[in-house]
Design a protein around this nucleic acid. Structure first.
Lengths: 224, 224
DNA sequence: AAACATCCTGACCGAATGGTCAACAGCTGC
DNA sequence: GCAGCTGTTGACCATTCGGTCAGGATGTTT
């Protein structure tokens, strides 16, 4: 006969909660905890035990909701890709380069700031050779980059900016903004700050905008 | 009585090799394999079994040389820090900003290119909250950054460059160059290349130098 | 050739891993 | 009030983890 422990003192579900509410709350809690753990330790290094503890649930419950470690991870990646795809969705040659570039830098910076764990999760996936995202990188994201690169080139032809390689420019903006999420620990350690305030972020955004726009010969609107 | 397997077909050591040679060769092999695996999967996600297989040795042998997983990891980090510290070792206010910034960008780019695994290992450590490097970040590296920031500020005072925040400038250069090691998978996926050639790297270096120097108002020597 | 140090490695260990399952509890619709 | 989903969870499993160790193999020294 199996020896059972004493029954649990309390269920995780709040007393008056409906089923749907419980699911929603627990899933949210699990996804948040998992994003932290996967971002910090990568796919292999993350453990369901750790995720479960941070979500305040038993490990079995995490598997009940998410099915498997792999499924949970993929779901997090997809959520992050959606956020990314919403960025700078429509630009055209008719737009003002200064406005578009500043909007790009600003919204990318906000993505890093609003979802630092997601940004780091993405970074960890790439560092590990992007086993789950390779298709996306050479597919959807590639098209995204190429389309915007085209617009940059046309701006250059019209003399609105220097004829720099547009793909390297996109990578430059990407890396500079991504850095503040991925390397937050380093930035804080070196600056001696405890956290980056809204004012800090605004200052960094202004710095990046100024240097990058000037660096590729884009004149701010009012200067034309 | 313990049941022994058939004796090994061949020892790892080559037949005529002296002891010292063996140690050197095996340690080199282990460090290279470990750098790859730690970079890809982070500290927790890396397994000694995996490292041992990639080094072509039994797991016990890895532990014989390196003592422990932790020790191996720390040794790799220290090796990478040495490489980093050798960068841009001495600059002064009297130097030419254009020369120094270009040298900084170029040497940092080469570090990413020559030691991509080491760069990624470093990135993974930071992503994980820098449990082994926190002290270094808020100590030695902080001083390194502050010292160079001082010089940048003095250049700005002398009108040799725009009065931009020097720390954000260092981070910009850092992130832009680091990106090509850490996100190599992404860069290759998006550009559709199989690998970055020397010519590609030269082109990127020139692009970054041009944009960043122009962006913070540094005139190349010949233009003064 | 004997004595000694270094090198090598399979067997083994306790702990932790992702995942399954059966038993139970609570809300929901009839 | 009762049947049937939905939610909950401890026990359990095979595998892998980092690490230890004994004992054999090889190289070096005398």
């Amino acid at each position: 006969m199996t020896q059972w422990k004493t029954p649990p003192e309390r269920s995780v579900r709040e007393k008056g909660e409906t089923n749907g509410m419980t699911r929603e709350r627990n899933e949210r809690e699990i996804l948040a905890a998992a994003e932290r753990v996967f971002a910090r330790h990568g796919y292999r290094g993350a453990s369901l035990q750790d995720i479960a503890e941070q979500a305040g649930l038993p490990k079995s419950n995490v598997l009940y909701y998410m099915g498997s470690k792999r499924g949970l991870y993929v779901r997090l990646l997809e959520r992050m890709m959606e956020r990314w795809n919403a960025l700078l969705d429509d630009i055209s040659v008719e737009d003002d380069p200064a406005e578009v570039l500043e909007a790009f830098i600003r919204s990318k910076m906000q993505l890093s700031r609003r979802h630092p764990e997601g940004s780091r999760l993405f970074a960890a996936e790439i560092l590990g050779g992007a086993p789950f995202l390779q298709e996306y990188l050479s597919g959807g994201l590639r098209d995204w980059v190429q389309a915007r690169a085209r617009v940059f080139e046309q701006w250059a032809e019209r003399g609105l900016m220097d004829p720099v390689d547009p793909v390297w420019l996109i990578f430059l903006i990407w890396s500079a903004t991504q850095h503040y999420a991925d390397f937050e620990t380093q930035v804080l350690g070196i600056t001696g700050k405890e956290e980056l305030s809204d004012a800090d972020v605004e200052q960094i955004t202004a710095f990046l905008t100024r240097v990058i726009l000037k660096g590729c010969g884009v004149r701010p609107r009012e200067a034309r």
